[in-house]
Write a protein that binds this DNA or RNA. Structure first.
Length: 690
DNA sequence: ATGGAACTAAACACTT
DNA sequence: CAAGTGTTTAGTTCCA
């Protein structure tokens, strides 16, 4: 009650134009939260304490990045002044726990946060495991993990599949991140090696540690033990640099608050400078292409190309400045993206994300190897990136897979179970979250649903939810979806595609910690949306009224145009050379089949890949449209959901069986499509979300 | 500058 | 009568 009113007040505070204010405005909410991730460290060093410490470190590091970035991005005048609830940066920096997950989310995109969270979760899990297993210094973690528990085959299969999924997601996220940053040219078949080469991981790792002070104890342990974490790559030890080089930074950070962002900047400056100057013989792609020397590595084929330049635009996160030619671009690059605080912060955030992903990728990769080995599978599915994607959610796929192959070994991922939600990091990675969202997303203190932008060119609600469901469930963060999207999602997720109002309420509170507060507000909003939007149909039931979704209306509500940045859309369409296909289909195709599109002949620039993320808050909608008649009619969408609901008056023009597969068949490499129409649903089944 | 969409708030009516 | 549900209106903000 007190909290509610307080947060309402905050939210409606006029002063909310920047990340800082919104960030700080939540500090009170976060502080009072019962959140499970709050770490309290006592003197003891139990694994749990260690874990907490790591989390705090990660949070602190992230906060420093964010604050730095925010301060770098805030235009000098107008923004920092107001906001009664604003917490001074210095204060926010002082207490590591003052940045709550939702605050981070406001600045980092969900994918970025997800990366952090995943990393932390992985650490958590592995931490615990390590306490049991790390005495076997020569046994890989995964092997011991797998074999030590006499787990049943079914469990193993499930875990295995989840591993695959996780790995693929990670890898794709990683790739996308790199591509987005222009750090790596689009190479769909990129392997770990190429990634590592591109990123010069040891440098990154070192930097990461320098700036964040986060080092997993597991990693430290393995370093100490000289273990090669990445068994699938001969030179992959480079992922983890020598431990020695990291200690100083670690300590300096651990010493605490005196480590100001400025200092970090300076440190980073030095690092970057050495990086760009020395060039140390490695053929890594420079993170910081200072000057015109395009990397001469195999990544760059023409002298006229530059990882940060494409389609006449500067690809620096959040920039998009038009440059007619390379010379102009170089000039622009040197002028606008010189080695300053801002660029440093941008670079740093991205590095953090990449680093997290990289670390976890290596770990998951190893784990996968061990799991496969344990299950006597052919070692390695070397290129998960090329595996066919499936539109269905990972959850449903997992389920189906285990159903379809209940007693056998998990069939190889190529057969289908390669659910990916690769695009969810779309614009939300660095450019949008760190820069764009600063400019327009934090319009309200609490990260209002209002950010339609997220709805539009962030991720489909399903994949977003799927990937971040734990986050939303536990963190008091407002989900970046519209009420309508959420309501629809809730309804469609229900077994009967219909919910009572109260059930909708419950879904909200169940799925989102945020909606456990401010009940009056959001419930009112839910009711308002139900009434307002024609896509929600009230059906009188025996025991009251239930709400259903009229998909046709829902599609109408948001015309199937690409809703992302027009320029991006344009880029994508032209870049893909799919001019004849409708944008929605392209988006759906892209979203559903990154692997296919990842062919260099189709995707030529990071921007076009970026684009693929844009433009729909809901992948199923788009897909359905595409599938409805195979000709991508923008106005017709199959009533996949509605015709199940007894309400529909729908002119569904697709018959039951002709439904989905047409165009996508070639893309998805066809899993046996279950008759369940939820197959195409964008989201995870409930059990996956829970 | 403008219109549309989303959000918030609130008033009101109806039902349980 | 209170609470829940549903409808409607108004104002604000953001975005294209």
């Amino acid at each position: 009650m007190m909290v509610e009113s307080a947060s309402e007040t905050i939210r409606t505070t006029p002063s909310n134009q920047n990340g800082i204010s919104s960030l700080s405005s939540q500090s009170d909410g976060g502080g009072g939260r019962e959140g499970g991730s709050k770490g309290d460290t006592n003197g003891e060093i139990s694994p749990v304490d260690l874990l907490h410490l790591q989390q705090q470190q990660a949070l602190q590091a992230a906060r420093q990045f964010l604050l730095q970035q925010a301060s770098g991005l805030n235009s000098p005048g107008n923004e920092l002044k107001q906001s009664p609830v604003q917490v001074p940066v210095s204060m926010a920096m002082m207490s590591p726990q003052m940045i709550t997950p939702q605050q981070m989310q406001q600045i980092l995109s969900p994918p970025q946060l997800q990366a952090l969270l995943q990393q932390q979760q992985a650490l958590m899990l592995q931490q615990v495991t390590h306490t049991h297993t790390h005495s076997h210094t020569h046994t890989s973690w995964s092997q011991s993990h797998c074999s030590m528990s006499g787990c049943q085959l079914g469990t193993k299969q499930l875990a295995f599949q989840q591993q695959l999924i996780q790995m693929q997601q990670l890898q794709q996220q990683h790739i996308l991140n790199l591509q987005r940053q222009g750090l790596v040219p689009l190479q769909p078949t990129a392997t770990m090696q190429s990634l590592q080469q591109a990123m010069c991981p040891s440098d990154l790792q070192q930097l990461w540690k320098e700036v964040s002070g986060v080092q997993s104890s597991e990693e430290a342990l393995k370093q100490a033990e000289g273990l090669d974490l990445s068994t699938n790559s001969s030179n992959s030890t480079s992922v983890f640099p020598k431990a020695a080089s990291t200690h100083i930074a670690l300590h300096s950070l651990a010493n605490g608050q005196s480590h100001t962002p400025k200092r970090d900047s300076a440190r980073l400056f030095e690092w970057i400078s050495s990086f760009t100057k020395a060039d140390s013989g490695d053929d890594h792609v420079p993170l910081y292409p200072k000057g015109s020397q395009a990397p001469s590595s195999h990544h760059e084929e023409h002298a006229s190309s530059h990882p940060l330049y494409g389609h006449g635009e500067c690809k620096w996160p959040g920039c998009e400045a038009l440059c007619e030619d390379m010379g102009q671009f170089i000039k622009h690059l040197n002028n606008e993206h010189a080695l300053d605080d801002r660029s440093t912060a941008q670079c740093r955030v991205q590095m953090q994300v990449v680093q997290q992903l990289e670390i976890q990728l290596a770990k998951e990769s190893e784990r996968l190897q061990a799991m496969m080995a344990h299950l006597h599978m052919r070692p390695s599915e070397p290129k998960p990136f090329n595996q066919p994607l499936n539109l269905a959610s990972s959850g449903s796929l997992i389920k189906r897979d285990s159903e379809a192959y209940p007693e056998g070994l998990p069939h190889p991922p190529t057969s289908a179970a390669t659910p990916i939600t690769p695009l969810r990091q779309g614009p939300s990675v660095i450019s949008s979250s760190s820069l764009h969202t600063h400019s327009h997303s934090h319009t309200h203190g609490v990260g209002p649903i209002r950010r339609r932008n997220s709805d539009k060119y962030c991720t489909p609600i399903a994949s977003e939810l799927a990937q971040n469901c734990e986050f939303y469930k536990n963190a008091d963060v407002r989900p970046p979806f519209t009420y309508a999207s959420l309501i629809r999602h809730a309804i469609l997720e229900s077994p009967d595609r219909q919910l009572t109002l109260n059930e909708i309420y419950n879904w909200f509170t169940r799925k989102f910690a945020y909606f456990r507060r401010n009940t009056a507000t959001w419930k009112n909003a839910v009711r308002h949306n139900l009434s307002l939007h024609k896509c929600f149909v009230r059906v009188e039931n025996v025991k009251g009224a239930v709400w259903t979704v009229d998909e046709v209306e829902y599609q109408k509500r948001r015309p199937p145009k690409m809703t992302g940045s027009p320029t991006l859309v344009k880029n994508m369409i032209s870049g893909l050379g799919f001019g004849s296909l409708n944008a929605s289909y392209q988006a759906a195709l892209a979203e559903s089949s990154l692997s296919l599109l990842n062919s260099p002949s189709l995707l030529t620039s990071p921007a076009s890949l970026n684009m693929l993320h844009v433009g729909h808050d809901d992948v199923s909608s788009t897909v359905e449209q595409v599938n409805s008649n195979g000709s991508c009619s923008p106005t017709l969408s199959p009533q996949q959901y509605s015709h199940q609901v007894h309400v529909k008056e729908e002119p569904t023009e697709l018959e039951e069986d002709s439904r989905p597969v047409s165009l996508l068949a070639g893309v998805t490499h066809s899993l046996p499509l279950p008759s369940d129409e939820r197959d195409l649903e964008e989201d995870l089944p409930t059990e996956e979300l829970e």
